[in-house]
Design a binder for these strands. Structure first.
Lengths: 233, 233
DNA sequence: TACGTAGTACTCTGAGTCGAGTAATCGGCT
DNA sequence: AGCCGATTACTCGACTCAGAGTACTACGTA
């Protein structure tokens, strides 16, 4: 049923808020911000209003009343419906119980990394690592906003984010160590290829030179069908 | 300059492919698939063709020639431009060196988790954990497609994905242990709240009962301004 | 009292996304 | 010879999203 309509978790957040009590969209956005959900759920006004409208069209929420205070713009208060409650529990159950394929920008970047030579990559990753460590320090200090005794239940998503951050730091820093020390497998071939390219050789000429200089390292090429070989590396 | 146009990494992948050699869109998609980049870069036909068209409009790639074989549809071959090469290196440098805010579905789900009671959450997370372990086993065995000696450089993004997977498994499994053993901080309050709700009490009645039964645990409430209190937990 | 800034509450627009659909060819099988 | 399913190569349109813009109020301040 709900195929693509389950793309944006902001819609789920709206359902959860209205499950608590009726609200108008702007109140939803400020509530989400107050509860620090902005950090884990992407929120912006444009999306919020269209997501709300789309939920209404699907009958998952209804417009309760429109209030006007002074000459301010009208506020439309929405409430969740039966169908909305069902969708909410179904959707959240699904998200918690079934890992979804997620694509991060950094994964994409790593997979295209070979267009740079190893030395450029070292530089770029060093910059990244500094940023990540900065974020980590910021996190360590920023329990400031949460009062003592604040329930862990409401911070659990931050713990997860932090665990991912630590993993990324470890990954990048281990990779950097290998690149800098030259123990990264195949780094000699990789470096030589970029040297040759920078000398202005044609791709074919580069392949030829490498084929001679790195016979064993390139043995895997013959194992692949023609179309399968990654020429970019 | 390139503000929102840098949203979709597929566009960057297209630039990288055309940096190797001119291609038509369908060839791009099959090349990406052969190189297993589908796992780290979201790819679908609809997006591919519009991304290509948008790159062309921005002058980052140009249509080289349109070939027709038999009565098949035309294939338009594209090549990268100077501006395209520049954009490619700028963009990839940026992705590698600057961590971007990423929002995963699971983070969103965790942050909305309190709408369920602890026992439901345990069930859902157990299902997730089985799935994740399944994925992990699949990964362990699926170096099958890569021939011996295949350069690590071309698999580095998978290593990262795997590291994230391990972290998620550890996180979920640690969380489950705490929930099941009852050592999760505040779980008694959380469980009682859902009990009361299921008995059909009004939110206000629930709050009242809890305020009496869990005085110390709720001390943090008084530290927050009215608007800041998360009523949903 | 005029002014600048922060907050409230949306609205609009154009660009991007995605899944489904189409139409042709190829290879194998019966 | 004819058919089935896979592969090649795109096209379409409905929906979604992001960011900028609007318009008003409230508040401090010089």
């Amino acid at each position: 049923m709900a195929g693509r309509t389950r793309a944006n978790p902001l819609a789920l957040a709206v359902l959860c808020l209205l499950y608590e009590r009726p609200m108008h969209p702007y109140e939803m956005s400020s509530t989400l911000r107050e509860r620090h959900k902005e950090d884990s759920i992407k929120l912006n006004y444009g999306s919020l209003y269209s997501v709300v409208e789309s939920l209404r069209k699907r009958g998952l929420i209804t417009a309760r009343e429109t209030v006007r205070e002074g000459r301010r713009p009208e506020r439309t208060v929405y409430a969740i419906t039966e169908a909305g409650s069902t969708e909410m529990t179904d959707w959240l159950s699904d998200l918690l119980s079934r890992p979804a394929k997620e694509f991060t920008q950094f994964e994409a970047a790593l997979s295209l990394m070979p267009i740079f030579g190893p030395d450029e990559v070292i530089n770029l990753l060093e910059t990244r690592l500094r940023s990540l460590r900065q974020q980590q320090r910021a996190h360590d200090q920023s329990n400031a906003w949460a009062p003592p005794n604040f329930p862990r239940l409401f911070l659990i998503e931050m713990e997860f984010k932090y665990a991912l951050l630590r993993t990324e730091i470890e990954f990048v820093s281990a990779l950097l160590d290998e690149l800098r020390s030259g123990t990264f497998e195949g780094i000699a071939l990789w470096r030589r290829m970029h040297e040759l390219r920078e000398e202005g050789r044609t791709p074919e000429a580069v392949d030829e030179v490498l084929a001679e200089e790195f016979k064993e390292e390139l043995s895997w090429l013959s194992e692949l069908s023609d179309t399968q070989r990654p020429e970019q590396g």
